[in-house]
Amino acid sequence: MSLFSNTSVRIDALPSLQEEEFEGLPLRYRALRMAIFAIVMLLVFAALGVLMWFEWQELNTFRWGVWLALGAAFAFGLMWAIEEVKGFPLRGVVVREHDLSYRSGFFKRETITVPFNRVQHSEIAQGPLARAFSVCTLKLYTAGHSGANLRVPGMDVDRAKRLRQQLDERVSQS
C-alpha cells in the first residue's frame, strides 16, 4: 500500500465526462431493435385485426372500444418508433481508464457510470436473437442490495470480451 497522500484538487480541474465522447453501438444492433419492433407491431396489429374481424362478423360495425384499442396501438407504435429513430444515435458507451458509462433513451435519457474498482463480477449474455445479429449484452454487477448493475445491450462481441478481460485483470490486481 502506497503512502497516503491527499493533495487538494480543484473541482473544475477534475476529469469530466463529456457528452461528445460517447461512441455509438454497432448498426447491427439497430437492425436487431428494428426486427424486434417489427415483430411486436406485427403481433399487436394481427391481434387487433382478428378482433376487428370478429366484431365485423357479429355486428357489421365497430364499437368504440375497438377504435380506442386501435388508437392506443397506433400511439404506442409511433412513440416507440420515435424512441428508436431518435434514440438510437444517443445510445453509446464511454470506456475511460477507471470507469464505464452507458447512455440511452430519448424521452428519458439516462447515463449510468460504474467505476471499475467497484465491480464485483461481470457477465456476457447472448440470447438466440442477439446471436443471429452477433451482438451481446455486457453486465456489470456491483455489491449490495441497490441492484446496482449496469447492462450494456448491443455490444460488439469481440469488444465486450476484450473489455471484460481488462476488467478481470483489474479486479484480480486490486
Partner: peptide, 23 residues
C-alpha cells in the same frame, strides 16, 4: 459510490435539468 446515474426527461432537457442518483 458504486454507480452514478444521471437522468433527464424530455421536458427537463429543455430547461437543462437532471436527476442525479449516487448509489
Amino acid at each position: 459510490a458504486q454507480r452514478v446515474v444521471l437522468t433527464e426527461s424530455w421536458l427537463m432537457r429543455r430547461r437543462s435539468l437532471a436527476h442525479a442518483r449516487i448509489y
